[in-house]
Design a protein around this nucleic acid. Structure first.
Lengths: 249, 249
DNA sequence: CGGGGCATTGACTAGTGTCAACGTTCGTGG
DNA sequence: CCACGAACGTTGACACTAGTCAATGCCCCG
């Protein structure tokens, strides 16, 4: 019988060395000795319940976090405007990079379901990076990758139709699940339609309608939050289709 | 008579020590000795003519660049879709952070007018950062700041009306000019309406119409590419107004 | 002087947002 | 264990923002 993560003492389970996310996590490429030093600065994982906040907008920035299990969303509150969801985080992803060098955290990060995270106090991470060139490189790479992701998102938001946005979203999650060894064709949406809408710049009603349409067209099946992809290629074609908004070719 | 930058031998003019952008540039906070090491790795500035490319999408990533004068835009070409403008760069700003850790440059960067840039070969910058903790910190801070900017942009694109986007855009440029010691109330737009539209996720006709409306409302004057802000406060109010799209409060 | 890029303006319309009503699921507490 | 309420999701009707297409004018450069 496989021991269930949340039932066991988390302390031992979280040694990086033994962590199943090792291959996709920040310390990628560190040798064993370096990995141990890295391991030593991790604050032992914090369990979060659905809806619980990991950081709140405006909190003093102190740490990065890596998702170990579960999923989270980042959202920013603006001037009497509805909260805007800016990121979803899956296991192995790094939370908080946008707070570096700023006093306060840019947005709130909230668990979408039960989750565990590892905390990396940034000052200790910086000290360690001084001695470990590999770690430094990894940090740069992570931030840069995030910059590229954000830019892809900007392109998505400014140039594409609702259908294209949702196709990209569904495919993006699929890819991220695949990379984690989960099924890329059948997965669970831990976020609400409203979260998806906020993230994609659409009304939640539009999200619902477009997913319904995708289902009618047999591209996917959606049952509540369970999503199955039937026509991957068609979704890709849709997402990349030349005729977005202000297309002009 | 003030010597004009572009007429003099650029080699001497570009010593960081003497550079007027010193206070807003990457080596901020380095002591004199460190500054000299930093100076030593800079490839001497490249002049660019309007429309000339600094990097092309897909080029092998090798260097970061700092704008010394003039302005540039980054744009990414996607699958048979019109190019999408993702950034405008003003003097002192760092170009290319999104290429770190990737083999290829994410987008093309093109001069919007005559411009000079300093080239920082990344491998040499990394070596130097090993010895200079201050420089490391600056790099992190720059990347993180860019992450925050991109996120602000994502919020703008996904939640706000055309009027709000343009108000934010005009104010954002104003702020950036102010920080550089230029007039925040009267400045030159080096980009076309089409570039602005692409950047803001609007049709160029919409940009033109909204700027026209702002002018009718006496918020700004626009004559070609010369822009004057008359009612700063009103623009701020407009940009922050709670009723964007899918507002719901 | 002519041409090409850029900007403006108008007419029309498609795509989404908004509002509203209703259905479904889940969790809580009696 | 069941009943209730709240949160979430779906669907329809309608309105309106912003995109598209098209015509025209302006300005700079060769």
């Amino acid at each position: 019988m496989k021991p269930e993560f949340s039932r066991r003492q988390p302390v031992n389970e979280t040694r990086c060395e033994r962590c199943s996310l090792h291959a996709r996590c920040l310390p990628l490429g560190l040798d064993l000795k370096a990995l141990e030093s890295f391991d030593a600065i991790i604050e032992r994982p914090r369990p979060l319940k659905r809806g619980e906040a990991l950081v709140r907008q405006g909190d003093h920035f102190e740490s990065l976090y890596v998702v170990r299990s579960g999923s989270l969303k980042q959202s920013v509150a603006q001037e009497g405007q509805r909260d805007q969801v800016t990121h979803f985080y899956l296991p192995g992803e790094l939370v908080g990079l946008d707070g570096i060098g700023d006093t306060a955290c840019y947005g709130s990060v909230v668990a979408l379901e039960s989750a565990f995270v590892c905390e990396l106090p940034f000052s200790r991470l910086e000290d360690l990076a001084e001695r470990l060139p590999e770690l430094r490189g990894q940090l740069y790479r992570c931030m840069s990758r995030e910059l590229r992701n954000d830019q892809r998102m900007m392109c998505l938001l400014s140039g594409r139709t609702a259908d294209q946005r949702l196709a990209s979203f569904v495919l993006g999650l699929s890819e991220r699940f695949r990379a984690r060894g989960c099924s890329p064709y059948c997965y669970h949406l831990s976020m609400s339609r409203s979260d998806i809408g906020s993230y994609l710049g659409l009304a939640l009603e539009t999200v619902s309608r477009v997913l319904g349409r995708f289902q009618d067209q047999k591209l996917v099946s959606v049952e509540g939050r369970e999503l199955t992809i039937h026509e991957h290629a068609a979704l890709v074609a849709l997402a990349e289709e030349g005729v977005g908004r202000h297309s002009g070719i």
